[in-house]
């Protein structure tokens, strides 16, 4: 899939030929720096790209059905019903002027054939499920009467309201403090298992990925540079960028004076270098990296977009 933004100064490619799949009940972590295209990928999937952004190429399928070219009204029915979303900031995700119950009931009744009473019963069920204490008494309160962590639980209940197959969780824990983060991650994992829902977990926090995800896709400058099972990627990162990311996480018990960091900054969208977009910052860059762009190359259970792994591939006879 490719997402581009036509601007006056030329077309910016925010997501460049990104491809991945998700199984029911699986959590796929998508990690990368700000501006790497993680959220953009998520918005593209639920069909909520801000204008003038648009999907320029590729396809999105849900359950074998192509959904990226649906008419807006049909896509709207998909949102919430088949694909749920959780956003970063629970403090701003809920309408401050409407009761919690009204917002959830509204969502349920939009997608499911229920009357007010049934929807209310389901609302209570959902709130209990996401762990709102005294949900029956509190469901008619307003968002500002809940703490940040509680509000994120309500947001999750809203995303679950119509029982979607896929949930796009865009930085669901970033705005929360650490102890609440762990609770929310645990909640997401449990819900994912109980409902057999696939979750696309977008974050820049490797710790969250390690905790929650089954597989992880590392994004850099709009492309996936490494995609594989979490264990492999964390323990044995292959792409120099992923390695750099891992090295920059301080380990407990290790006396580090200076944190390792990757030199330089991610290129802006209008100045992506030719060849591998990471080459100017890569410690292992070769001549080929500056000219030719690497595609994903299978490496065991993972796939890596890096020329360092090209030889073996060439030996097997695949270009």
């Amino acid at each position: 899939m490719t997402v581009e933004f036509p601007t006056r100064k030329g077309t910016l490619i925010a997501v460049d030929d990104v491809s991945f799949d998700l199984q029911p009940g699986e959590i796929l972590g998508v990690v990368g720096e700000s501006g790497a295209g993680k959220s953009m990928t998520g918005y593209a999937i639920i069909g909520l790209l801000d204008r003038p952004g648009r999907i320029a190429g590729g396809r999105i399928e849900l359950d074998g059905e192509r959904i990226d070219n649906l008419p807006p009204e049909k896509m709207r029915r998909f949102r919430g019903r088949r694909i749920g979303a959780i956003f970063q900031d629970p403090l701003t995700s809920l309408n401050p002027l409407l009761r919690i119950s009204d917002q959830i009931i509204e969502t349920i009744r939009t997608h499911m054939d229920m009357d007010e009473r049934q929807a209310r019963a389901r609302t209570l069920e959902l709130l209990n499920e996401v762990g709102i204490p005294a949900a029956a008494e509190r469901m008619d309160e307003y968002p500002h009467q809940f703490s940040g962590g509680m509000r994120q639980r309500i947001v999750i209940a809203l995303a679950l309201a119509a029982n979607p197959q896929l949930i796009i969780a865009d930085e669901p824990t970033t705005a929360l403090d650490v102890s609440i983060q762990a609770q929310i991650i645990r909640l997401l994992k449990r819900l994912c298992k109980d409902h057999d829902t696939a979750i696309m977990l977008i974050t820049h926090d490797m710790g969250v990925i390690a905790e929650a995800a089954d597989r992880v896709a590392v994004m850099y400058a709009g492309r996936i540079v490494e995609l594989g099972p979490v264990r492999d990627v964390i323990k044995d990162a292959k792409h120099p960028y992923t390695k750099g990311l891992m090295d920059s996480i301080p380990a407990i018990g290790q006396d580090v004076r200076v944190l390792a960091q990757i030199k330089g900054a991610m290129p802006r969208l209008n100045a992506i270098p030719p060849g591998c977009s990471f080459n100017p910052r890569c410690p292992q860059a070769m001549d080929r990296c500056r000219v030719e762009r690497p595609e994903l190359i299978t490496q065991g259970a993972s796939a890596v977009a890096c020329w360092l792994f090209a030889e073996e591939e060439a030996g097997v006879g695949v270009a």
């Binding site: 709207r76 949102r79 019903r81 749920g84 979303a85 900031d89 969502t107 796009i168």
Partner: peptide, 11 residues
């Protein structure tokens, strides 16, 4: 955000 979230819920 809450409008974006309302849209994401398919209202």
């Amino acid at each position: 955000d809450f409008i974006k979230f309302a849209r994401a819920r398919g209202l």
